[in-house]
Design a protein around this nucleic acid. Structure first.
Lengths: 190, 190
DNA sequence: ACCACAAACGGATGAGCCATCCGCTTCAAA
DNA sequence: TTTGAAGCGGATGGCTCATCCGTTTGTGGT
């Protein structure tokens, strides 16, 4: 099931595509494969061969940030106080969502283009479910709220902060953290 | 500045276009003007003449719902208790946002295609600002939250509820109201 | 060093969407 | 009924998308 290693010109092209694509998402330009190919001075077909759809490319771009978030979740599991653990992780999540524009579309998407993305999201969901379960067990959070509420709610906060298109990314992140705080006040049972 | 009345064949076409377009948004299909024209058995140019962009058509579709919301806001201003007034209005807003798929993109858009839309949004903002000011004056709401927070937050809640693409519109509305409740718990100062 | 072949490349190309332009039709005021 | 302005429609050129296939390039074996 494992694929043979890529040829060295292929890996080079792949990196170049990812590098150019990263600029596109950072600048908020739409990720059009033809366009990326031209900018990268690489044949269209090459880009399509590496990334069959814009989503696949976007997921590749977003993966490192999602993996980072996964590590944060696992790290949070080491924290003693369940509420602190949950809150800190959620703050990290908001920060990632608002800092890297590639991430939120990937979380919002119903289906994933890449196996890696699904894996990572699944593991993240597991870790987060554990964080939430501990908070529930300790009685520090509204008993009605589930894991399948939290992902959309986080995306919703990111969305709300992102609508403020006049603000720069840093300000948006701050705003997002404030919104999170409002929500958490609503969820917290001291 | 006021335009001459439309010819009767023109108004008929206009209605037909709106009627077809309404089906498109209700079904979640993308609102492509060429496509709408073909479905309506009307020339492409006619559609483009009435609605220069998809946004203009969408705003026309959404306007009645937004006007309804405006009336709800004005109605809420008659309510005595500032918190009840605010809460009821926000609940109505969520309900509209989640019931009519045309509305949230119009609110999320940074600029409006139609003068009418801008007018209506502006008046709604004014009424809402008044509701919020009363709540602040009565000290029943977090003092830091402003009107320019609330619109995005409402859109965020709608967005969060809409991500649950497996649910039907009614269930999504219920979910949205629950999310609103969580947020309001965080905002309320009894 | 060379060969052979698989892997990867690139761009020409056809399919499909968008929106405009302009010759024709229809309405309504006189 | 006439007349001209308002409205109509679809052919069309520009643009994006993604595939196909002839050519090039890297690699493992001799």
């Amino acid at each position: 099931m494992n694929t043979p290693p890529l040829r060295k010109d292929a890996v080079q092209n792949r990196h170049r595509i990812i590098e150019i694509a990263r600029r596109y998402v950072d600048d908020g330009r739409p990720l059009q494969l033809n366009d990326v190919a031209r900018t990268a001075s690489i044949g269209v077909a090459t880009v399509y061969r590496h990334f069959p759809t814009p989503e696949a490319l976007l997921e590749t771009i977003a993966l490192p940030a999602i993996e980072k978030l996964l590590r944060r979740a696992e790290h949070a599991l080491a924290e003693d106080d369940p509420w602190t653990a949950l809150r800190d992780f959620l703050a990290a999540a908001i920060e990632v969502l608002l800092t890297d524009p590639a991430v939120s579309p990937v979380f919002a998407a119903a289906t994933d283009a890449l196996e890696d993305t699904s894996d990572c999201k699944r593991r993240l969901a597991t870790a987060f479910a554990e964080l939430l379960a501990r908070a529930h067990a300790a009685g520090v959070i509204d008993s009605g709220v589930t894991e399948s509420d939290m992902v959309p709610l986080m995306c919703g906060i990111a969305y709300a902060a992102n609508i403020q298109s006049t603000l720069d990314p840093t300000e948006r992140a701050t705003l997002g953290l404030r919104y999170l705080d409002l929500l958490l006040t609503g969820l917290h049972r001291p």
